[in-house]
Design a protein around this nucleic acid. Sequence first.
DNA 1: TTAGAGAATATTGTATACAAAGTACAGGAT
DNA 2: ATCCTGTACTTTGTATACAATATTCTCTAA
Lengths: 223, 223
Amino acid sequence: MDDIILDMDQYLPLRDVVFHALRKAILTGKLKPGERLMEIHLAKQLGVSRTPVREAIHKLELEGLATMIPRRGAQVAQISEKGLKDVLELRRALDVFCAQIACERMTPEEEKELRETCKAFEEATGTKDTTVIAKADVAFHDVIINSTRNERLITTINNLAEQIYRYRFEYIKDDSQHSRLIEEHRRLVDAILNKDPEKAGKAAGIHIDNQEHSILSQINLED
Amino acid sequence: MDDIILDMDQYLPLRDVVFHALRKAILTGKLKPGERLMEIHLAKQLGVSRTPVREAIHKLELEGLATMIPRRGAQVAQISEKGLKDVLELRRALDVFCAQIACERMTPEEEKELRETCKAFEEATGTKDTTVIAKADVAFHDVIINSTRNERLITTINNLAEQIYRYRFEYIKDDSQHSRLIEEHRRLVDAILNKDPEKAGKAAGIHIDNQEHSILSQINLED
DNA sequence: TTAGAGAATATTGTATACAAAGTACAGGAT
DNA sequence: ATCCTGTACTTTGTATACAATATTCTCTAA
């Protein structure tokens, strides 16, 4: 009787619960860049001891969402313009690469998914709901990224995406950009479906370039 | 009198000491893939408590050198052929990218350094001392990578390099390959000094391709 | 009033204790 | 003989205690 598989509710270590909680708080801006992350304080707030909090903070540091100074604690990472440019430059190179190999490796099922998520994004822009739009955008790009079937590439890109998540959010809010985004997505989809790596790479590059311009101009406004 | 700055000997958290110790042990093969990393055991061996050992193991996990299963502890990462191929594919893309932008960004001082480390590598192959050769090779590539001045790119590539360090070692031992390596380095240097991104990218790609073939054939022999 | 020394306080780093889960092995039922 | 089960033991997960360092505040002296 091996078809009755009780997927016994997964055990979640506290450190991971805390990690996800803090991560979400940082990405949504509830914890602001520069804010100190004090262990006892967070531990009390979350109702756990310092140990899992410490471990979560270390994980955040390795992901680049927190910075630590020995004996002085951690704070929410404050990304500089240079740091943001570095992330975007690398992200661009990897996205171009993904688009290129997606042309070779994408299965028919994934091609269908690509068309669907592309359309879903277009529909999402109609809702004016930033969260919905952002999710649709992520879903679309995930199809491309996952089609590479390169685990290391996937985690690396996702980590980079996380770094700019906070800023990208503002960018997606600006609905004057939506028609251009849709156009860029379509171009990318066409190139991939036509198995044209060069065009796909270019389309992916342009897509990130525009994102970069938006984000950087937005950052400069803030100062 | 603020020119008397006692750069008070750096404080090194124990977790980092342990981390470096374990990392070295893994990279040099003293701790073998699949070997269990038990906290109490390692703590006793290193003369510290479990806490810094735990934190070091977590760091190793995030770097991909250890794998953890909740409630069952960690073991030295066992890289699969697929995993190795993934790493190499990504490494290739990033090395090509580095070579390309190095053409634009390399300063005259770095160009000098590039020529010097290239020559130093050629001389190192004469010594037949694997450690010396490996170090010279790393130094050469570091010049290229660092010239991009993209921190994120640099750490990402270094992390990938670390993953294959264990296998690359064997590859460098094979002195029948040395003349080819030297030739490949020279081609890369020429392309960069001539500011020819396309050639530089190609040369870097070929360099990794050959490394990939060597490493993969070597892995297959082991099974 | 301001600068500096020193105590008081807060915070991180490390060690240890206890709880919970996993593993291994022995003994009994089928 | 094999499989199941219960117990002893190991190991990790979390909490807490203590030590070392950083920060803040107060009080004094110039």
